[in-house]
């Protein structure tokens, strides 16, 4: 803020750093320990890949990992696809109930996931869909949709409508205008939304937990089960891996979202 003492300024900045320290402390500790040879956190610290190698032999975790990745990829495609369509509609058309439509996007984010997950469990069982990866996909897409619509919508706000008009005056048919102008302009937003959807699914625990039948699970669900049974350093290793992957994804998303070739 303008004015105020320099001393005060640095105190405040120092506080910010402390906050960041607090936010990253457990993550850093956990990640470091994943590379420590000792299974019980005994120091001195000896760098080793032993727990990661143990992971490679853990078939359950590997299968769960593959499930997670596959599910996240499917979620990314579906959620981004239908979310983008919806975002286009909300941006282009003057709809009478638009405010209502936008409010309807809130439940997945504001209702506790516990309730959403258990209600899905009830409903899917009742109508015969049951549990499983397909059920989880249904749930993950529902959770990702609001985010996709918001992210793509924000990107569309740049007035792609007028660009299509310009394309039309230059002789482009509506299809050509969409393909050559709207789509490329939208693309960074769509890709960013896709990454976001992937991350939302990959990290999703609660919904997957309720919709996982015995024998089929995703990585977070496996980790939870393992934690409840008792600590093993392998959990540490896989956790470190996951957090690095999801933070990495988010970093890419952040760059795309901000520097998406806009004017």
């Amino acid at each position: 803020m303008t004015g105020g003492s320099a001393w005060g300024k640095w105190t405040v900045r120092g506080y910010l750093l402390l906050t960041l320290l607090f936010l990253y402390l457990p993550i850093v500790v956990m990640t470091l320990m994943a590379f420590n040879r000792s299974p019980l956190y005994q120091l001195p610290f000896e760098f080793d890949f032993v727990w990661f190698r143990a992971l490679a032999g853990n078939d359950r975790l590997i299968q769960a990992g593959l499930n997670s990745v596959g599910l996240a990829a499917a979620n990314m495609v579906v959620a981004t696809g239908i979310g983008t369509l919806a975002a286009i509609a909300l941006d282009r058309y003057r709809i009478r109930g638009k405010a209502l439509l936008q409010i309807l996007l809130f439940p997945p984010i504001t209702i506790p996931w516990l309730i959403i997950g258990t209600s899905m469990l009830i409903f899917f069982f009742w109508i015969g869909i049951g549990r499983g990866l397909h059920a989880m996909l249904l749930g993950h897409v529902a959770l990702s949709l609001p985010y996709v619509i918001v992210v793509v919508g924000a990107r569309l706000k740049g007035g792609s409508h007028q660009l299509e008009e310009a394309a039309a005056t230059l002789g482009a048919t509506p299809w050509q205008a969409f393909w050559r102008v709207s789509l490329p302009v939208m693309a960074p937003g769509v890709v960013a939304a896709g990454l976001f959807a992937f991350a939302v699914s990959f990290d999703q625990f609660v919904i997957s937990y309720f919709l996982a039948p015995p024998g089929v699970s995703t990585l977070p669900v496996e980790i939870y089960a393992a934690i409840r049974k008792g600590f093993t350093p392998e959990i540490n290793a896989i956790s470190a891996l996951i957090i690095l992957v999801s933070m990495g994804l988010m970093l890419v998303f952040a760059r795309l979202y901000r520097f998406g070739g806009e004017r």
Binding site: M33, D203, F205, I227, S239
Partner: peptide, 13 residues
């Protein structure tokens, strides 16, 4: 925006 479960777990360590 990273995995909530893992973050919780990291606190146990």
């Amino acid at each position: 925006w990273s995995n909530a479960l893992v973050r919780t777990f990291s606190w146990t360590t």
